[in-house]
Each structure stands twice: as C-alpha cells, then as structure tokens.
Design a protein around this nucleic acid. Structure first.
Length: 578
RNA sequence: CGGGGCGUAGCGCAGCCUGGUUAGCGCACUUGACUGGGGGUCAAGGGGUCGGCAGUUCGAAUCUGCCCGCCCCGACCA
C-alpha cells in the first residue's frame, strides 16, 4: 500500500528565497541553504531549520532509522540535560574542557548539555543488563547534541547545536563486539549509498575515544577539512593522519665518503639549499625540532617529505606535540632555525624509515650558515626508526602497490570499537554462563545528521543552486504553474491528485509571479524533477519535464498529459532504487 | 584561545577619514497600471534604538573608551 505523497503549495509555504546571500556566509552550502530558504542563523553555530530544511533532515533520519532497525538496533531517546556525576565518573567532566556546555540548576548543582552519550547509555545498561542472556544489545537515538566549539564554521558544517545519530553496542566479549561492529559497518555502507553521496570509508585515528578499531565515512568534497588517501585500485583508504607510507628501498652506503661541512650562507630552506648546492631534495635530511610533553626531540624526514605530527606523537606515546620555538631550536642546536641536523645532536632523535635509507645525505650542521653532506644514518648519527612522514599523492598503496590519490573530505560518520573503555570505568557488567561477573564490551557509532545536509549540498550544486539526490530531496517533483487559465489550473490539480496518490512528493509553485522568478527559485531549491504546466505547454500537447541536473532550459522534454504521471513515477522510483 | 575583519531597514551596500538639514541607494515588501516561458516596466508608499553603554561637543552614524555580537585564518575537535 502506497503512502500518500506529501504536498506543499507555495502560497501557503514559508519558503523565503534570497537573491543575495548574507555577506558572512562563505561556504557554498551555507550560502545556498540560506538563499534557498532551508535554514536561518540564530547565533554562532546555531540554526533554525525552515520547512524545507526540516524535510531534508527527516528524509535523512528516515533512511538512517530504516537501516538501524534492519541491523536490529533499537531506538531510544536519552536526555540532553545531564547531571555532572556521569561525566565525572569517567573523567570527561574535566577532559572535555570548554567544549562542554555547562550550567547550574537552581540549587547550584552542576549540569551540562550532552555532547555525546557513552556515559548515559552505559549507565542505563549497567542498571538494566544483568545476564549474558540480555546481550547483545544495540541502542541508538537521533537527537540534538551540544558542543561549545571554539570556532563553529561553515554554516551547518560545524555547529554548536547539531543533530546526531548515535548508536552504542554492548556485547559479551571482543569477538562478539567485532560482529556488532561489522554489522554496523555494513549498515553505514547501506546508509551512505542510499544518501546518494560519493564517499569513502577510511581507517582513522581512534583518538581519545580509546579502543581498538575505527573507521570514518568521509564524503568527498573539495572544501573538506580532512585529507584522505585512497588507493586508485583497491579498497585501501585512510585518513592522512594514519595513512601508511611505503617503506623505502634499503640503500647501500658503503661507498659514501666521510662527512664534509659546506658553507651555505643564508640558505635556510630545503628549496634554497637544494638550489644552492644543485642537489635534489630527496638527498636532504629535514631535521625538525619538536617540543614533546616538555622535552626537545628531533624528527628527521627526507627533504621532499612532510612530517606527520600524529605519527610522531604515536611513536613517542605522547599527547602534546608541537614545533619548538625559534629560541628553543637555538638552545637545542646552537644554530638558528634552518641549520638543524642530527649529527652531533644530543637530544632524542626519531628518524623516518625513508630518511634512514638515504645513503648520501645533506643536512644542517647545527651551526649558522653551514650544512653537511655525505651523512649516513647509523654511521654518522643514531636514532629510533619510525614511520613519520605523511603520505603524498602518488605514493604506492601499502596493500596493493598501486598509486594512492589524495582527496579532501568531510567526516559524516564514524564508527568505533570501544572495548571496555567506558564499561570498565562505570562497572557495566553481566553474569556469564559460568556465573562469573564480566565487563561488557562496547562499540559506538555516530552520524552527523545535520552536517550531512550541508555535506550533500557541498557535493551536489551548480552555479544556480542545489541539486539534491532523489533520496533526500525535500520534495521529488517541483511543479511550476504558469498562468491561471482554467485548463492550467485543471491540469495542475490533476497532477497533484494523481502524483500524490502514487506516493510522489510535490511542491507546487502556484504564486502569481513571472516565469523567470519561478524557474530561478526552482533551480535554487534544487528539487530533482521539474514539471512546467502553462498555456503554452498545453497548446503544444502537454507538460514539460526538466531534470535539475540538466542546466540547458531547452532540454526540457514535452510529455503528453496522458504519459506524464507514469513517466514521473518511474523516474522517481528508478532514482530511489539507485 | 592567538591573528585579521565586520556591525547602518529582511538581504546586499554607500555615508564615517574631514561631526552640522528630515540617514541614502539597489533588491525584497505594500498598492495600482501595464506585462507575462529564465530574477520585467512605470507610478505611489511602508519600514531605521545607525550593535549597546558611557564620554567629548552647542550638536555624534561620524571622534574617544569600555562592552556585546558575527565572520574568516590558525590552534583545538569525543
């Protein structure tokens, strides 16, 4: 049984379009969502969803609910207003810092608005789950989250209040938890496929969430904040944070002459010294001084490579890693920035695998205006070898050896195997078959629902407006009614009745406005199919159908009144099947 | 949080430097006429605590101080 399709007549709608976007809106999605009347800003990172925006949000939520339910997850709704006790229990009351939106109640008690709900759900489960018979369990909710971001940006891309789907799995052991994780991974693939977005599932840094595994769902857009490396051949894809660089070939340094000092006045950068000496950047040992948890450390990568600070932090088991100041560099090396080198450096040295393989290196002499050549790892300097550099475009895939390509993306989903990080701290246990108390093993799974709206627009737009994928378009068909002749009104009424009976969702522009205005608004709003009904089209024998993806207005297709409903229904259904 | 910028009608802006009629322009809005297939034309209108407070001055959108808000770059981001 088909559900009756939703319908909105423009004359009754709150659908305020703008010719010009507010000057402070800079990202494409922000400008278009404001211009096309989907959202309005109330404060920094705080937005109202207008009717069209609410519909897109609902569409995305419906897809997510369908796939969550199919994966046997159950929907709950946890509170947003949270007493401080739970976050204190896991230490996150302090760890979250200023990002946590805190408030006090009338008695002076500490509260906060929920930024994520691991503690709350774990609290629920530790009270209600007693036995292995109660497991596995997967609970999810779709709800507003609050994070007092230092810098909200990009309109709906990064908000202080935003809609998130968060799911949490509870299992008897690691193996069972991995099954739950895989089930959710598959559900996420189905969700992102159905959303009509181009994305990659990438392995990522599990960061402070703890746990043993994590994958991000990155929607590929030029304006994305994240960089991911994806294989052009196989399925390998990873956030640049963790993308593995290839191991270089081992070199033979037996014929390398002894170290020799060179005068390089005022030549600081690799580029300058490389040009000055006529030596390629690959021969250089780029030596960077870092302050790691208060200690000075030197990191050495090849001159044509970039150091990856996350890899450096991981190699040292450190959390706080940043470049040393110019004064600290001088203190550590005895030379100004630009002349640091590992030879003779007294502090700890970490060397990238490929830098260690350089058989005839050039590096700073730890002396003003001087470099050294014929430097060899192991002979002239020592250090721990690690993988320290970032992957470059064109590097070979660590899995299959084919070239990697770099993309920009927006993180729209993230799944984690949490292990017992929260359940152990909070005492979420169950009684096993053997009657032993055991700690529940968890996973958590997020999707930025409101962020997805902006992400979809970032990926699907042209100069005239939005191009929604059918699955999340606020309506499927935009009927432009031109004129108010009786035969026009009659045809629009017929289309309205027959299309909605077939479950099609339609927006009817019944305003008494000029055609140009209506066409411009239709393009801006971005509904995938447009039907134009006017005296002219009827005189030519029917109704015009134009796809939003077709920018040439002349490419509209004339359909007879008899065939138009069938054709539209077929196209909508085909698009939804993907 | 560091750096930069902005705040004048719903939106986009001018005016400020060099203080002085009733604060102006375009779009949008209201009314009327003409018009009618890619943001029309003409006419007549309505809409402003010039972000706030304090100060200087005979007089402040304009000068000074403090505060608030917003945007961008960076740091941060479960």
């Amino acid at each position: 049984m088909l559900r009756h399709g939703a319908i909105m007549r423009y004359q009754n709608a709150l659908l305020p379009t703008l010719k010009e976007a507010p000057a402070d809106a800079t990202s494409v999605s922000h400008r278009l969502l404001l211009r096309a009347g989907y959202a309005r800003r109330l404060g920094a990172g705080i937005y109202s969803y207008l009717p069209l925006g609410r519909r897109v949000l609902t569409k995305i939520e419906t897809i997510i609910r369908g796939e969550m339910d199919r994966a046997s997850a159950q929907e709950v709704l946890l509170p947003v207003l949270l007493p401080a006790d739970l976050f204190r229990e896991t230490g996150r009351w302090d760890m979250f810092g200023d990002t946590l939106l805190r408030l006090k109640d009338r008695k002076g008690g500490d509260y906060h608005l929920g930024p994520t709900h691991e503690e709350v759900i774990t609290d629920l489960v530790r009270h209600e789950v007693k036995s292995y018979r109660d497991l596995p369990l997967n609970l999810y909710q779709i709800q507003s989250k609050f994070r007092d971001e230092a810098r909200p940006r990009g309109g709906l891309l990064r908000c202080r209040e935003f809609v998130m789907k968060d799911a949490y799995s509870f299992d008897v052991d690691e193996a069972a938890a991995r099954v739950s994780y895989e089930t959710m991974r598959a559900a996420y693939v189905r969700i992102f496929d159905r959303l009509g977005l181009t994305y990659r599932m990438v392995s990522a840094d599990s960061g402070a969430m703890g746990g043993s595994g994590s994958a991000e769902f990155q929607v590929l857009v030029q304006s994305g904040e994240d960089i991911i490396a994806a294989c052009t051949k196989c399925s390998y894809a990873a956030n640049l944070e963790v993308a593995r660089s290839p191991a270089g070939p081992a070199g033979d340094a037996s014929g390398t002459p002894p170290v020799e000092q060179l005068s390089t006045p005022k030549q600081r950068t690799i580029e300058q010294v490389s040009a000055f000496l006529g030596a390629p950047p690959e021969r250089f040992l780029k030596s960077l001084v870092y302050l790691v948890d208060g200690a000075l450390v030197m990191a050495v990568v090849r001159g044509d490579h970039e150091l990856n600070e996350i890899k450096l932090a991981r190699a040292l088991g450190a959390t706080d890693v940043h470049m040393a100041s110019a004064e600290d560099v001088f203190k550590a090396t005895g030379a100004p920035v630009g002349f640091a080198g590992p030879v003779g450096f007294s502090g700890k040295i970490l060397v990238d695998r490929e830098a260690a393989a350089v058989v005839d290196g050039i590096t700073g002499a730890n002396e003003r205006d001087a470099h050294r050549q014929h430097v060899v790892f192991g002979r002239d300097y020592q250090g721990e070898i690690h993988e320290l550099r970032s992957v470059r475009d064109g590097d070979v895939c660590p899995d299959c050896g084919q070239p990697l390509a770099l993309y920009r993306g927006i993180e729209a989903g993230h799944i984690f195997l949490l292990g017992t990080h929260y359940s152990a701290k909070m005492g979420a246990q169950y009684l096993s078959v053997e009657g032993e108390r055991k700690t529940i093993v968890m996973g958590c799974y997020g999707i930025g629902v409101s962020r997805l709206i902006a992400t979809a627009v970032e990926q699907h737009h042209d100069d005239n407006g939005i191009l929604w994928p059918m699955s999340i378009a606020p309506y499927q068909v935009h009927i432009v009614q031109l004129g108010s002749e009786p035969e026009v009104l009659a045809e629009v009424a017929r289309l309205e009745a027959e299309l909605t009976t077939q479950g099609i969702e339609i927006l009817i522009d019944d305003r008494d406005d000029r055609p140009g205005v209506k066409f411009k608004d239709a393009d801006l709003i971005g509904i995938p199919l447009r039907l134009t009904v006017g005296a002219k089209s009827l005189a030519r024998g029917g109704v015009e159908l134009k796809l939003r993806t077709e920018t040439d207005p002349k490419k509209a297709e004339l359909l007879s009144c008899a065939e138009v409903v069938g054709s539209v229904v077929e196209r909508v259904q085909a698009a939804l099947r993907g």
